[in-house]
Amino acid sequence: MGRRAALAGLVALMPAMALAHGPTRQKITLTTDLAAPPEEVWAAIGNFQDMSWHPAVATTDGEGGNAIDATRVLHLGTADGPTISEVLYKYDASKMSYSYRITDVKVEVLPVTNYSSHLTVKPREGGGSEVEWRGAFYRGYPNNDPPPELNDEAAIAAVSAVYQAGLDALVARFGAP
């Protein structure tokens, strides 16, 4: 095979190669405004070991407090329900912010892989606070042609629902401005 034939073959394959790129990293950010001052909201959500403020979390087990590399296991629904294991990789109480990633979760529980998240409380102009919850992740199915329950849309919908449920619980607890 000559150089031209090899080049022509490669050029012919390029459209198929372009389609075989796999999943792309998804990112979402949800925010909510609360009537309470940031310090009060942070007191409720700033402890990595305590996620009792989220209605989906029945119990939290963990080690390491708020130190980097602290771990927690969230038990969903009931104490013996499905779990999500997470590790803390950034914590700044002065900025009322922490970042964590999932180390273990079944895609049937949350259809994502390579998930990281950031939770921050900020003061609002005029009083109250804003809570921002950001996440970045890949869908639960790493190859092309995922089943519907493990595609990008399913991953975005599931993470959005988790965040929204938590933020709605904070509005119920602290009120909207």
Rank of each mutant, 00 (worst) to 15 (best):
167 L>I: 06
137 F>Y: 09
28 I>W: 00
41 V>C: 02
133 W>E: 09
119 L>P: 04
114 N>V: 07
59 T>V: 12
22 G>E: 02
153 E>Y: 09
146 P>D: 01
113 T>R: 15
29 T>N: 10
143 N>H: 13
71 T>R: 05
67 A>H: 11
161 A>Y: 04
146 P>F: 01
69 D>S: 15
61 D>V: 12
163 Y>V: 14
135 G>D: 12
10 L>G: 15
162 V>W: 12
160 S>E: 04
93 A>L: 04
176 A>C: 07
38 P>G: 09
27 K>I: 08
141 Y>R: 02
66 N>I: 02
130 E>I: 13
35 A>F: 03
136 A>F: 05
124 R>W: 00
28 I>N: 07
161 A>M: 07
69 D>I: 09
149 E>P: 06
12 A>W: 08
115 Y>M: 01
145 D>I: 12
17 M>L: 14
5 A>W: 07
105 V>N: 00
160 S>L: 01
132 E>D: 08
127 G>H: 05
79 A>T: 13
45 I>D: 00
104 D>A: 11
164 Q>V: 11
125 E>H: 10
10 L>Y: 13
152 D>G: 06
93 A>M: 05
110 L>S: 03
89 Y>A: 06
150 L>H: 07
33 D>H: 12
153 E>H: 11
91 Y>H: 12
106 K>E: 15
6 A>T: 12
40 E>I: 10
136 A>C: 08
117 S>I: 04
57 V>N: 02
50 D>C: 04
43 A>H: 03
157 A>R: 14
11 V>I: 15
136 A>N: 12
122 K>F: 09
19 L>P: 01
124 R>Y: 00
99 S>F: 06
13 L>S: 10
61 D>M: 07
161 A>P: 04
174 F>R: 06
28 I>T: 10
